[in-house]
Amino acid sequence: MTSQENRRITDLGTLKALSHPLRMRLYRALFVARTATASQLADQVDEAVSLVSYHLRKLAEHDLIEEARGHSADGRERWWQPSSYGVSIRDEDVRGTPELVAASDALGRTLNDQRSELHRRFLDERLTWSGEWRSASISSEWLPRLTAAELAALGEELDALLKKYDTQARAAEQAGDTEGRENVAVHLYGFPYRP
């Protein structure tokens, strides 16, 4: 059963597994689909089913995904689902060794590259979306002066707010209310910088 909490990643093996670009794409695609087979995911990422199956097994070895229960399988393919609501990596968990720092940095770069690609794709295809969706899209930057504690609190509040909307959307979908719903990517960064 999928946990409704983020999985806190603290070990080197899991960081390395998730920092692989294809595995991260598969994890994201599975999170959006909620459940899928290797064949379905292979179509989404344009890779061979055998390669996708291999990488799904690697994600499962690190408990990032799990076999989905309750799906009728034809005996040839397994259904997969994320094993948690998402993942989180905290600095205090990865600063212990140079290897943990390097793996965390590699995952951060993979995520940044893929998030940037998602936004670029939206910009390239924005005219294919309705005016309502184009107007609803967000591209903002704020430059507040905060303490580290205030930044941490802001992150927690934003996380709670996004989880509220996601929970409402999932409940509506389960009730059959899918009209007008699209997958939405929300990327927000908060970090100190020196101009």
Rank of each mutant, 00 (worst) to 15 (best):
Trp129Tyr: 13
Trp129Phe: 15
Trp129Ala: 09
Trp129His: 14
Trp129Thr: 08
Trp129Val: 09
Trp129Gln: 13
Ser130Asp: 01
Ser130Lys: 10
Ser130Trp: 04
Ser130Thr: 05
Ser130Phe: 00
Ser130Ile: 03
Ser130Met: 01
Gly131Ile: 11
Gly131Cys: 03
Gly131Phe: 06
Glu132Leu: 10
Glu132Arg: 15
Glu132Gly: 02
Glu132Met: 06
Glu132Trp: 06
Trp133Lys: 14
Trp133Gly: 03
Trp133Ser: 13
Trp133Ile: 11
Trp133Thr: 11
Trp133Tyr: 12
Trp133Glu: 11
Arg134Phe: 06
Arg134Cys: 07
Arg134Gly: 00
Arg134Asn: 02
Arg134Met: 01
Ser135Phe: 10
Ser135Thr: 14
Ser135Gly: 09
Ser135Ile: 08
Ala136Thr: 06
Ala136Glu: 13
Ala136Asn: 03
Ser137Gly: 12
Ser137Phe: 12
Ser137Thr: 07
Ile138Gly: 05
Ile138Lys: 13
Ile138Gln: 09
Ile138Asn: 09
Ser139Pro: 05
Ser139Gly: 04
Ser139Asn: 08
Ser139Tyr: 10
Ser139Met: 14
Ser140Lys: 15
Ser140Asn: 15
Ser140Asp: 13
Ser140Gly: 15
Glu141Cys: 14
Glu141Met: 07
Glu141Ile: 07
Trp142Cys: 09
Trp142Asn: 13
Trp142Phe: 15
Trp142Arg: 11
Leu143Lys: 11
Leu143Cys: 15
Leu143Ile: 06
Pro144Ser: 00
Pro144Glu: 00
Pro144Asp: 04
Pro144Lys: 02
Pro144Phe: 02
Pro144Arg: 03
Pro144Gln: 02
Arg145Ile: 15
Arg145Asp: 05
Arg145Val: 09
Arg145Met: 05
Leu146Lys: 03
Leu146Asn: 10
Leu146His: 04
Thr147Glu: 02
Thr147Lys: 00
Thr147Val: 01
Thr147Arg: 04
Ala148Tyr: 04
Ala148Asn: 08
Ala148His: 05
Ala148Gly: 07
Ala148Asp: 09
Ala149Asn: 15
Ala149Gly: 10
Ala149Asp: 01
Ala149Phe: 05
Glu150Thr: 06
Glu150Gly: 04
Glu150Cys: 00
Glu150Asp: 14
Glu150Ile: 03
Glu150Gln: 09
Leu151Met: 12
Leu151Pro: 02
Leu151Asp: 01
Leu151Val: 04
Leu151Ala: 08
Leu151Trp: 05
Leu151Glu: 04
Ala152Lys: 07
Ala152Gln: 02
Ala152Glu: 12
Ala152Cys: 03
Ala152Ser: 04
Ala153Thr: 10
Ala153Glu: 06
Ala153Gln: 06
Ala153Ile: 00
Leu154Glu: 13
Leu154Asn: 12
Leu154Ile: 01
Leu154Phe: 12
Leu154Val: 05
Gly155Thr: 00
Gly155Ala: 02
Gly155Lys: 01
Gly155Glu: 00
Gly155Arg: 01
Gly155Cys: 01
Glu156Cys: 06
Glu156Thr: 07
Glu156Ile: 02
Glu156Ser: 04
Glu157Ala: 10
Glu157Tyr: 05
Glu157Lys: 14
Glu157Ile: 06
Glu157Phe: 08
Leu158Arg: 08
Leu158Met: 08
Leu158Pro: 03
Leu158Gly: 01
